[in-house]
């Protein structure tokens, strides 16, 4: 058999085997994060004023408020798939406008990702 064919079979086996292994492994992991279906669904007893949020306006401590919820996005800055700049831009500010300007295709899942970082509500 031609070496290229051997290599191709090997790559196919590794690729398919790895893909199946990853999915089986991931699906067998216990759910560690509480399921959150929306921003409003994440409840918290903490309440913060906009003045408190402004004090956390950089990469060392990045808080923002979106649709009445307050988020500590410090850990998410480097993890954000779209780059750190878009998160840094809303540190210490009301991020509702920039958040809602995201493409609709990623909005629902972005809300799920954001729900992990909720720390409280915006004081009225």
């Amino acid at each position: 058999m031609h070496p290229k064919l051997w290599l191709s079979v090997l790559v196919a086996v590794v690729f398919i085997g790895g893909a199946i292994g990853l999915v089986v492994w991931n699906e067998s992991q216990p759910e560690t994060e509480p399921a959150a279906s929306s921003l409003a669904g994440s409840s918290s007893e903490n309440s913060f004023t906009l003045g408190q949020i402004v004090e956390h306006g950089d990469a060392t401590s990045c808080w923002t408020t979106i649709e009445g919820k307050v988020y500590d996005l410090t850990e998410y800055i480097e993890k954000h798939p779209g780059g750190s700049k878009s998160i840094l831009a809303i540190c210490g500010e009301d991020g509702t406008g920039p958040f809602n300007s995201m493409p609709g295709s990623v909005m629902a899942a972005a809300k799920l990702a954001l729900a992990k970082f909720v720390i409280g509500d915006l004081a009225k």
Binding site: E33, Y76, P81, S105, A109, L112, A113, K116
Partner: peptide, 9 residues
């Protein structure tokens, strides 16, 4: 988990 925002509905 940080990439799920890009999974199409």
């Amino acid at each position: 988990s940080t990439w799920t925002a890009f999974v199409p509905a």
